[in-house]
Structure formats: structure tokens, C-alpha cells
Computed example of a mutant assay.
Amino acid sequence: MKDELLTIGAFAARSRLSAKALRLYDRLGLLAPAYVDEASGYRYYRADQVERARMVALLRRLDMPLAQVADVVAARESDGTRASELLAGYWTGVEERIAGQRTLADFLRGRLSGRSSEMYGKFVVETVEVPEQVLITEKRHTLADELPAWIGASLGRLEAAARECGGVTGAPFVVYHAEVSQESDGPAEACVPVADGAAARAWAEERGRTWETSVRVEPARRLAYTRIAKAQVAHPQILAAFEAVEAWVAEQGLEYAGPCREVYFADWEAAGPEDAVCDVAFPIRGTGSAR
């Protein structure tokens, strides 16, 4: 039988994987040898395993974690379309991470070079009048690394609840009543505008306490805001957008009329890294020279 098999050295040469990598993949169950000599412990492989080994090598060159490599390779043997979808999903995540890192690198370069003010020119700041709104809200103390998951879950709960309150009437948003960072936990407040205030209050009385949810009326406000892409939303790169709006408010001689917020107007899951998804905004008052 061994005459028909390849030694680990010969197989490594043909598969473009090192013997060390082959031993690791064997331990992980990713690429098991066809035969192991019980006396010597030598590993032997079939020639038809070369294609699988090369696929593993190529996927690893994409820096794909071994667990995901195993999923793609296993799917390929039964459903090539599914394997392709798994790879596409992984690569979408890579592109989103790289886009976020690129934005963070730009932010840090500006800070390190002392040219933060130049960065603000990349953000277009405008104003908008927002009418009075009835809101269902959920408030929580949270640190920056926990914030994205909480925002998604909280807004999802509130939007589902809004169906019982006449429906959603405006873009959901998150208000920061105090700083949220790695050291400061806010609180933050997720808000969804709804149509029926009476239904919202009744809903909150019945079930809202489960989520520490409340109903409040948000007065009409004027917001100064800048629009950012999905890749810019991550902390700390989003700080550049907040600082840009703050600098603009100071230049215009305006005053703050409430805590800052992030307004989410797009489908987060469907958006790509460069798609606009969020307005970073501050309620303002005063005449100044606002446009």
C-alpha cells in the first residue's frame, strides 16, 4: 500500500505546504494523512489529496483562520456554491476591517502630526431641522467595545416594538448622555421615533420595563451633523467626525442644545464599508453664521 502513497516530504513539495504545517493540519483534523505507519509514525498521503492541500494553502494566504478554512474545504467537497459563499462572507469582513483600519490610520496620522484641524476639512457639516418626536427608548451604561453589539440589539428590539406603537416615523438614533470610551460607560440611549404616543406609553407600561425602556417626547431641534461611511463608525475613528462637528459649531459661534448623537438612516447589514450609514450630530441653538 505504501508504494502507492507519498511520503510527507514528497507530499509537502507537491502541495506547497511545509511538513510542519501538514502535521498541524493533521492534529486539527483539517488534512489527515491517508496512512500512518504504527511502528515509525511516518505519515503518507494519497496523490488525490494534493488538491485539497493546495486549497488549504491558498485560503491560508488570505489569512483565513483555520476553523473557517475547515468549513470552506468541507463545504467544497459537497457544495461548491456554499463554499464560495463562505469565502465571500469572509472576504467581506476582511474588506470592512481594512476600510476601518484605513480610516483609523488617517485619524492617528492627523493626531500624531499635529494636523488634526486639517482632518476636519474632510467632513462636510450641515444643519437640519428635526420636528418634535415621540420616542421609545432604551438606556444603558456600556463601554466602547460593548457598544456596537448593544446598539444593534437595542435598536432591533425597539423597532420591533414600534410596530405596536403606530410604526417607525423617523431614523433611529443613539444619544450619548456622557462619554462612552474604554474607561467611561455613558450612559447611551437608543431611540426610535414612533407614530402613536398613547400606544407607546401603554406598551411601556405593559412590557417596556423588561428592557428598562421608556417613552419620552423629543422637542423640535436643529442639528449640526456630518455624514459618515460604515467604515468610519467604529471607535475611535468616529471621534474625528465628532470633533469635526464640534470645531464647526465653535467656528459658527453656536451653542449646544443637548447631548450628541448618532443617527442611523441606512440598512447596516446591506451597506458596504464606503456606504454612508450614519449622521454624527449635535443639537445646537443660536444664530451664528450656520448654513
Rank of each mutant, 00 (worst) to 15 (best):
Y264S: 04
R222T: 15
G29E: 05
G41D: 04
V72R: 07
T7C: 06
E218M: 12
E146G: 04
A70R: 12
G156A: 09
L158V: 10
A229T: 06
K230H: 04
G100Y: 11
A266W: 00
I151Y: 07
R43V: 13
E262N: 09
W248C: 10
D275I: 14
A75I: 09
A229L: 00
V215T: 02
C191T: 09
C165A: 02
L108I: 15
E4I: 08
K122E: 05
R46V: 03
A188N: 04
E218Y: 01
V194C: 05
Y225S: 11
E159M: 15
E164M: 10
Y35N: 05
Y45T: 09
W150K: 00
L155S: 07
Y90T: 00
A200M: 02
A240E: 08
E132M: 08
S40T: 15
V233M: 04
E159S: 13
V245S: 03
E159V: 15
R14Q: 15
C260E: 10
Y25P: 02
A160Y: 00
S181N: 09
T7R: 12
A229D: 00
V73D: 05
A224G: 07
D185Y: 03
E164Q: 09
L239V: 14
S15R: 06
G110R: 03
S181H: 08
F265S: 04
S40V: 07
L239Y: 00
G197R: 12
R23C: 01
V194N: 02
G29W: 07
G152Y: 03
E262I: 05
L135W: 03
A250I: 02
C191I: 06
E138R: 10
L112I: 11
W150Q: 06
A281N: 09
K139D: 03
K2E: 14
I284D: 09
L58M: 09
R163T: 13
A220H: 04
Y256E: 03
T210I: 07
Y42W: 05
R115Q: 11
R60C: 01
I98N: 07
C165I: 06
G41A: 11
R27Y: 03
L17V: 07
Y176T: 12
S116K: 07
G89D: 01
C278L: 11
W248S: 14
D3M: 04
D37S: 07
L87A: 13
E138P: 00
T213M: 14
A244T: 11
R216K: 15
C278Y: 07
R16M: 12
R207Q: 11
A70C: 02
Y42D: 12
A32F: 01
A247H: 14
A220M: 06
Q49I: 03
L112E: 11
E255F: 09
R209H: 08
E206V: 04
D185Q: 07
Y120R: 01
A204H: 09
G29M: 10
R111I: 13
A67H: 08
M119S: 09
V168S: 01
D279I: 02
P273K: 13
A281S: 06
A74N: 14
T210K: 08
L5Q: 05
P283L: 02
A47D: 14
I238R: 08
G208F: 02
M1W: 07
Y176N: 13
E4N: 11
P33N: 10
L135F: 02
P131Y: 10
I98F: 12
A250E: 14
P148E: 11
E159W: 06
T226N: 06
Q182K: 08
T213A: 15
G186I: 08
L66Y: 01
C165V: 09
